[in-house]
Computed example of a mutant assay.
Amino acid sequence: MIDDERSLVPLKVNPIRPAHDVGDTCEIIVNGQKHLIEGRSIEHCDLVRLAFPQMRTSIDSAVTIAFRGGPSHAPEGLLTVRQRTPIAHGETFVVTHTVAS
């Protein structure tokens, strides 16, 4: 299986919102904050850095990323470590950091 195929966990199809063109700047929302992104996709680690710029990873922590409002071929789902998802203008990402006790 190709890495890009494993990175998507789509839940339903949204034919209204297309992916943007290469080189375009795309506005996404990460934990309620707007960010301008250049390119057609974004990786898990980039979203973590946008959500928690000062965070240091540890063995006993986990980060969960949920998204919605994506392009028609990946409108919503979950993103895990080392995964990438295509992005659409106005797409929303919720990044949650938890620490095991």
Rank of each mutant, 00 (worst) to 15 (best):
I2R: 07
D3E: 04
D3S: 06
D3R: 05
D4G: 07
E5S: 10
E5T: 09
R6A: 07
R6G: 03
R6S: 07
S7E: 07
L8Y: 08
L8D: 08
V9F: 15
V9E: 13
V13K: 14
V13G: 06
N14F: 10
N14H: 14
N14P: 12
N14K: 08
P15T: 15
I16T: 15
I16S: 14
I16Y: 12
R17D: 09
P18C: 05
A19F: 09
H20A: 10
H20C: 05
V22D: 12
V22Y: 14
V22R: 14
V22E: 11
V22M: 13
G23W: 10
D24F: 14
T25Q: 14
T25K: 14
T25M: 11
E27L: 06
I28G: 02
I29S: 00
I29W: 03
I29P: 03
I29C: 00
V30H: 01
V30K: 00
N31S: 04
N31F: 03
G32M: 02
Q33D: 00
Q33N: 06
Q33A: 03
Q33T: 15
K34A: 14
K34W: 00
K34R: 05
H35G: 00
H35F: 12
H35N: 00
L36F: 06
I37M: 01
E38N: 07
E38G: 06
G39W: 01
G39M: 02
G39T: 04
R40Q: 11
S41Q: 10
I42A: 00
H44V: 00
C45Q: 13
D46Y: 05
D46P: 04
L47D: 02
L47A: 06
R49K: 04
L50H: 08
A51V: 05
F52M: 07
P53F: 01
R56K: 12
T57M: 11
S58E: 10
D60I: 12
S61A: 09
A62I: 14
A62G: 10
I65K: 10
I65C: 05
I65E: 02
A66V: 13
R68G: 02
G69H: 05
G70D: 13
P71S: 15
P71L: 11
P71E: 07
S72I: 14
S72G: 08
H73S: 13
H73R: 10
A74R: 03
A74F: 01
P75S: 14
P75L: 14
P75H: 15
E76Q: 11
E76W: 11
E76P: 06
G77R: 00
G77Y: 06
G77C: 09
G77E: 02
L78C: 03
V81I: 15
R82D: 15
Q83P: 01
T85W: 01
I87G: 02
A88K: 02
A88C: 11
H89L: 06
H89S: 12
G90I: 13
E91M: 12
T92V: 13
F93A: 00
T96I: 09
H97P: 05
V99N: 01
V99L: 08
A100I: 08
A100E: 07
S101C: 05
